[in-house]
Design a protein around this nucleic acid. Structure first.
Length: 511
RNA sequence: GGUCCGUUCGUCUAGUGGCUAGGACGCCGGGUUUUCAUCCCGGUAACAGGGGUUCAAUUCCCCUACGGACUGCCA
């Protein structure tokens, strides 16, 4: 690898990027950075009929959220632009001439109906091939069956046409895929793919080869769905005389549905209750909303950590890796060949690990806006304290609001199950005494340690057991059964609120 | 149908011509805790099947099965 490493991620703006796409971007990025190369974003918008408004912006925002930084792209600029294929029409037109001139490409005038009819005919005849190729093109309308004059006449008349690739006969194509090893195909298996559409724009196959060459791309890392067209792309490089400068290829395994068959699709998320998109997406046509990892309470680092381990694993058994560690550890040769089933469960576990390991102040920054919306007039330092107390029982950022609501508002009701289990005949009497002894403690000494000491001393002196006292006390303070260390709650709440809640509980909980 | 790709615990994976086939998630048990969570300890569970090659195959080869992708003037 003497060449400068230049890697591209080339999505088409036909909708939101889903996690498979994000993973492809991530692996591209990891590889680029591992080898101190450039990472570029190229927008493949050659199909105007599938263009979706906002998708381009969505893709860039998603990558940004993930921490994937673009070196060259439509926003960043660069010396190899434009980075939007729709703005490269002239470049493609120039290049298709080369292939037209050297006999690698030809004009075809068949209508969609005629193509349909041909395929149907082949199918009905029991043929295993249904391709537009050297055998079938003889019965279609193209440069082979029409005279040169007829071809020009048609073009001048304004007839619509496409330009097809003239697949060479019986050539053995052997490509070395970095992940899969040698892939061998005979050119006779391939069909005469359309290179230029009737709308004057190239197809993916053509644009991708031209751009990768012109942008000096060193490695093409993309999804497995492209593997079948790899031989075609090699042939295109050959037709251009670029085979020696051809990038290296690596085809990533697919991400599969958590259950059932097939690759993960956009619809699976809503069906199975987990996001498949990094960010929320609102379909501009239907208004339908698809949930994103960000809005569902996931941390970006956890999200990409999970994605990185789908199809790849580092040398050691380490599972929690920062983006920088991933870059250091990444080895494309260790990427798996087989598809990886996506696990929403493990994704949650990753998130939990990241939440626990995120400093309280940083977590507070993330949670504050929503907290303020739900509980006006909160104090930042108080929120930070609460965050520290509840974070280890959060799987999602959004869990905070359920886990911590009692820190911000007096319980309105008491969990009946807990009442039934913990509220005994003598509970009111005990709580009254707890109330009295807590009331004696001066406000400045109302710490977790001190209140704990006082209450526990009281329990021991009266030969009560801890559960009998502490559980109902927790109930009146929080309205429920679980939660952080009780005396941490008491001190966070402060003296006034603690006493208030005991009073309220005594009044409202009856048996 | 055709072409291509793949197959280690339920899932993500490590691994090797000879190992008690390792880790993680999940699940189940136990400990810690006033409680929930965290944490700690333990358990469950896999080399798709059949042929070869070999002293020895999960590992190498072949076949079968299963799974997947592609098969558009979509990417």
């Amino acid at each position: 690898m003497n060449k400068k490493v230049r890697i591209r991620f080339a999505p088409s703006p036909t909708g939101p990027l889903h996690i498979g796409g994000v993973r492809t971007a991530l692996f591209n990025y990891l590889f680029a950075k591992k080898h101190h190369g450039d990472f570029l974003l190229r927008i493949e918008d050659t199909d105007q009929t599938r263009y979706v408004k906002g998708a381009e912006e969505y893709i860039m925002k998603s990558l940004e959220w993930c921490g994937i930084k673009i070196d060259e792209g439509i926003k960043e600029g660069g010396n190899f632009g434009p980075y939007r294929q729709s703005e490269r029409r002239d470049i493609y037109k120039e290049h298709i001439k080369t292939l037209l001139n050297n006999g690698s490409a030809y004009y075809a005038f068949d209508t969609p109906d005629e193509l349909d009819a041909m395929r149907r005919r082949l199918e009905e005849s029991g043929s295993s091939v249904r391709q537009y190729n050297r055998f079938t093109r003889g019965e279609m309308k193209n440069s082979f069956t029409l005279s040169e004059d007829e071809v020009w006449a048609k073009i001048e008349k304004g007839d619509t046409f496409v330009i097809r690739f003239n697949i060479p006969e019986n050539e053995e194509i052997i490509v070395n895929d970095i992940i899969r090893g040698e892939v061998k195909v005979n050119s006779s298996q391939l069909d005469d793919k359309v290179l230029f559409k009737s709308d004057g724009l190239p197809t993916y196959h053509f644009a991708n080869v031209v751009d990768d060459r012109l942008m000096n791309i060193s490695h093409v890392i993309r999804g497995e769905e492209w593997l079948p067209s790899l031989p075609l792309h090699v042939l295109l490089y050959r037709a251009f005389g670029w085979e020696n400068e051809m990038p290296q290829f690596a085809h990533l395994p697919l991400i599969l549905k958590p259950e059932g068959k097939g690759k993960l699709s956009k619809r699976d998320g809503d069906r199975l209750g987990f996001p498949v998109f990094p960010l929320n997406w609102k379909d501009p046509e239907t208004g339908e909303i698809f949930s994103g990892y960000k809005e569902s309470g996931y941390l970006p680092d956890a999200f990409i950590n999970m994605l990185a381990l789908l199809g790849w694993s580092p040398e050691n058994d380490k599972e929690i890796l920062s983006l920088n560690e991933m870059i250091k550890e990444f080895d494309i040769h260790k990427v798996h060949k087989s598809g990886a089933r996506f696990s929403p469960e493990k994704t949650k576990w990753f998130n939990q690990q990241y939440i626990i390991n995120t400093p309280n102040d940083k977590l507070t920054d993330l949670l504050l806006p929503e907290t303020e919306k739900k509980f006006p007039d909160v104090d930042v330092l108080y929120v930070e304290k609460v965050v520290g107390l509840v974070k280890e029982r959060m799987h999602l950022l959004t869990d905070f609001f359920e886990q911590a609501s009692f820190f911000f508002q007096t319980p309105k009701e008491y969990n009946p199950k807990v009442v039934k289990k913990r509220w005994k005949e003598d509970t009111p009497e005990i709580l009254k005494q707890i109330y009295d002894i807590l009331k004696e403690i001066p406000e400045i000494r109302f710490t977790s340690e001190h209140t704990e000491h006082i209450v526990k001393t009281y329990i021991e002196k009266n030969e009560l057991n801890f559960g009998k006292v502490l559980n109902p006390l927790r109930l009146v303070l929080t309205g429920t059964g679980g939660g952080p260390h009780l005396f941490d709650i008491i001190s966070a709440l402060d003296k006034e609120e603690t006493l208030l809640r005991i009073e309220k509980g005594l009044k409202e909980i009856k048996k």
